[in-house]
Nucleic acid binder design. Structure first.
Lengths: 120, 120
DNA sequence: CCAATGTCTGCAAAAGTTCGCAGGCGTGCA
DNA sequence: TGCACGCCTGCGAACTTTTGCAGACATTGG
């Protein structure tokens, strides 16, 4: 029964792709809709080259899709539900370290949620 | 607004912990309830030392809890819902490579689900 | 007490990831 | 055509993770 092994490897690849704070922020940033590389770089405060490198990884596993318009490359989530699923992981993080109790998870979720689409 | 950065780092740590095929299999293996190290090692077909190393990582981030009985250490999921959440990621894996279409996701999910608690 | 068993930890080599930088490619504007 | 812009890729250095192995520790049975 090798399917299990195959599936676990596929899932591990996905988790590895998500195992980087900047890529997670990027995914949350795309929740509002498509955005070009420079726009993402500005809102995450990262060099555009690095954003492009992250996007190349996400693209390789079809987590984002690209649309070109002139010299700009616009990216969007291939699965819009992905961002919500990522936030569903909040209950599993070890809250002892930096957050005090379960209420703060809600605070964090709120902070990161739809309402908050201003500069930063 | 640094909370966002903090949360994304916490989430990235969690994803990094899950970004290993054997640890994912381990988590799925514990879905059925607690199990000792040797038992896990047998059902995953891995050396017990390695299982212990993986468990040490999962323990450090409070994803599993330990109960000792004599010389055996029994482990269980700290959040039983974790295993289900992991499987919710199946729609996001890139299915072109080894699986043909969406039906196979269901097959994979079924293969890995509750019914399947026989040897392997 | 001694030996066997089940598990844990430390270490170092191998493998993998991240990051900055240099240079390349395509597009648009003067 | 030439230049600036937006983005992409390749490369090497620094860092992190994985793995097997050797040895340690605690518990149990003889």
């Amino acid at each position: 029964m090798p399917s299990r092994l195959i599936v676990s490897r596929e899932l591990a690849d996905l988790f590895r792709l998500l195992a980087h704070a900047d890529r997670l922020r990027l995914i949350e940033d795309l929740r509002g809709g498509e955005k070009d590389v420079t726009g993402i770089a500005q809102s995450l405060d990262l060099p555009a080259t690095r954003v492009s490198q992250h996007l190349a990884l996400l693209r390789a596993q079809r987590l984002v899709e690209e649309r070109r318009d002139g010299r700009n490359h616009f990216y969007r989530l291939a699965h819009p539900h992905l961002a919500a699923w990522v936030l569903d992981a909040l209950p599993f993080i070890d809250i002892r370290q930096r957050l005090e109790d379960a209420d703060h998870i809600d605070t964090a979720r709120a902070l990161w949620s739809v309402a908050d689409r201003n500069p930063h």
